[in-house]
Amino acid sequence: METVNPNSAFLSNFEVMQILQQLKDNTQKKHKREGSLATVTYETVRYLQDTECQHQSSDCIKKFLESVKSFNLTKLEKLMMVNTPPRTELEIQLIVQESEERLSEDEVKQIIGLVNEFFPQSSS
């Protein structure tokens, strides 16, 4: 076996969740379960179910990414914001490197506002 490109694209938690859920439904239909695949999909889905991607949709992620374009964030920072939406200034400081220099206080507030708009916190 050979690896052509170890990192050809990033996947958000939401995308992985969707693919795995589909896979789970398909294998259940055929009554055939491959041991290790079943284990890893079950465990991964169980982990992802507890994360925010449970309440996300491709639409709101797209709109969110569109709206944060102006902040000059890196791809990885945006990915982390989708996977673990920051709701406090502290969380933005963790995700964005040297956030104090790159983002003004107003911009940080704007990002938190956008996060709350597109990924509303579930009440439970």
Binding site: M1, E2, A9
Partner: peptide
């Protein structure tokens, strides 16, 4: 957290998979 990796491999499809389509048996 998750990434896509492009890989290349030669897959040996044993005769007991011949009733399935090739892509199906390869993914299995």
């Amino acid at each position: 957290m998750f990434v896509l990796s492009e890989m290349k491999d030669v897959i040996r499809v044993t005769p007991d998979h011949f009733h399935q389509s090739l892509s199906e048996s390869i993914s299995t």
